[in-house]
Design a protein around this nucleic acid. Structure first.
Length: 131
DNA sequence: ACATTGACTTGTT
DNA sequence: CAACAAGCCAATG
């Protein structure tokens, strides 16, 4: 923290990231880009991972529910045991993995707008019109 | 103050 | 469908 009352913008953004991750319901997973987008940082998926890297045990943030767009765990390379732990935690919450250890995002990716318009059959991804 | 790396995503080849 | 490259911001050396 930066001592001064108004710390760097980063700290504030991190809070939003943590809050968003906390909103992920149990048995569901979200991607870094999605978290960043809901947190108000569109395109800053990398920072989400960086923020999570600063997390510690007991922070109360379900970091294990956050995976990359490939539906695979992205923990820093080298710490493979951690990957197994995350996979175990997710499976314990009811998340199913496909061959190779990839999660079926089609079925488990968290939907921030749950309830309003969640229509089965319409799997169209929000691809908003972009210029 | 500059260069490098990092729990990523998306578009193009 | 798979591989490559560019883009983004922050922390560390």
């Amino acid at each position: 923290m930066s001592g001064s009352g108004a710390g760097p913008a980063g700290s504030r953004a991190y809070a939003g990231i943590y809050a968003t991750v906390r909103r992920v319901p149990r048995g569901r997973v979200a991607t870094y880009g999605q978290i960043a987008r809901v947190a108000g940082l569109p395109g800053h998926a990398r920072m989400v991972g960086y923020a999570l890297s600063a997390l510690r045990e007991g922070s109360g943030v379900p970091w294990h529910r956050v995976v990359n767009a490939a539906g695979r765990i992205s923990l820093r390379s080298g710490d493979r045991p951690m990957d197994a732990v995350q996979r175990f935690l997710l499976e314990r919450e009811g998340v199913c993995f496909g061959s190779g250890g990839a999660i079926r995002l089609r079925q488990f990716q968290w939907r921030p707008l749950a309830g309003a318009g969640s229509r089965p059959g319409d799997q169209t991804r929000r691809k908003e019109a972009r210029s």
